[in-house]
C-alpha cells in the first residue's frame, strides 16, 4: 500500500490527483493510511479512484441524434468545440462499444423501444445524458406520440436544458458527469468495502409519469368544443393509471 504513495500517486501537494468529495458519498480521508468515514480502507479508495479516473476520461459516447439536437451534438464533437479535450470524442455507432448514451432529440414512442434496446445493449458501467428539453421532458411536444422525458424509459444521469442546448452546455454536462463518476466505487464489491457501487444521487429511477402528471380531466376538454356546448366531451378519457 505504501508503494502507491511512493509511486507518486498521492502527495499532499498534488491536488489534482485527490479524489473529489463534492458533497458526494465518499468523504476523502486525510491520512494516507486512515480509513475514511465510510469505512472503506485506503487501498479501496485509491483503487476506486484510479478506475474512476480512467473511466471518466475515456467516455465513449453513443450519439442517438433523433432530431435537431443531433446537429449541435455533431458541432460538439467537431473541431471547434472538440470533445476530444475531455476524452469523449470516440463516438461509436454500436452500443456495444459505448458507455455514454447521449439522447439528442425528440424521442417518439415508436422509437422508444429501439432506444431502450440500445440502452440495454450497452455494457455496464453506462451513463445517460438527456440532451435538450425534448429528451429531458418532452419539451414543446406535449403530444401522444412523444415520450414525455426519456426518464420514462431509462435512468438519466444528467439533463441538459435548451432547445437546442449549445455545445458548451453539453460539455458542461459531460464535466458534471465526470464529477459524478468520481464519486462512484467501482471496486466496492470486489474489495468488500461496503460502499454503494453507483452514486445514485440524481439518477432518474424508472418512474412512469404519464401526461406530465397532470390530473385526469384537466386536459380532457374537446378541442372543438371546449365549453361542452356541442356535447363533444371526451368519450375516451386519458389513461392515467399505469399498472
Amino acid at each position: 500500500m505504501g508503494s502507491l504513495e511512493q509511486n507518486g500517486l498521492r502527495t499532499k501537494s498534488d491536488g489534482g490527483l485527490r479524489p473529489v468529495s463534492a458533497g458526494g458519498l465518499r468523504p476523502v480521508s486525510d491520512g494516507p493510511m486512515a480509513a475514511d468515514a465510510s469505512g472503506s480502507g485506503f487501498f479501496a479508495t485509491r483503487a476506486d479512484w484510479l478506475v474512476n479516473w480512467g473511466r471518466k476520461n475515456s467516455l465513449w459516447p453513443m450519439p442517438l441524434g433523433l432530431s435537431c439536437c443531433g446537429i449541435e451534438l455533431m458541432a460538439m464533437i467537431g473541431p471547434k468545440f472538440d470533445l476530444a479535450r475531455f476524452g469523449a470524442e470516440a463516438a461509436r455507432f454500436t452500443p456495444r462499444q459505448c458507455d455514454l448514451l447521449i439522447v439528442a432529440g425528440t424521442l417518439t414512442w415508436k422509437m422508444a423501444t429501439a432506444a431502450r434496446t440500445i440502452y440495454d445493449q450497452m455494457p455496464d458501467p453506462k451513463w445517460v445524458i438527456a440532451m435538450g428539453v425534448c429528451s429531458s421532458s418532452g419539451g414543446m411536444y406535449d403530444s401522444y406520440a412523444v415520450v414525455q422525458g426519456i426518464d420514462s424509459i431509462m435512468p438519466v444521469d444528467v439533463y441538459v436544458p435548451g432547445c437546442p442546448p449549445r455545445p458548451d452546455a453539453v460539455i458542461d454536462a459531460i464535466l458534471k458527469l465526470q464529477k459524478k463518476i468520481e464519486r462512484e466505487a467501482p471496486l466496492a464489491k470486489l474489495l468488500g468495502s461496503g460502499v454503494p457501487e453507483r452514486d445514485e444521487t440524481g439518477t432518474g429511477k424508472l418512474v412512469f409519469q404519464p401526461n406530465h402528471g397532470i390530473a385526469k380531466g384537466v386536459l380532457d376538454k374537446h378541442p372543438h368544443d371546449p365549453k361542452g356546448k356541442l356535447g363533444l366531451s371526451d368519450p375516451q378519457p386519458r389513461k392515467t393509471e399505469i399498472k
Partner: peptide, 26 residues
C-alpha cells in the same frame, strides 16, 4: 404510431391532450 396502439388520433373524438402509448411500451 406504434403497432397495437388503439386509437386514431386525427379523428375528432380523440382527446385534445392525447392518449399516450406508454401501456404498450410497458
Amino acid at each position: 404510431l406504434p403497432q397495437g396502439y388503439d386509437h386514431h388520433p386525427l379523428r375528432k373524438e380523440f382527446p385534445h391532450a392525447g392518449i399516450e402509448p406508454d401501456r404498450l411500451y410497458r
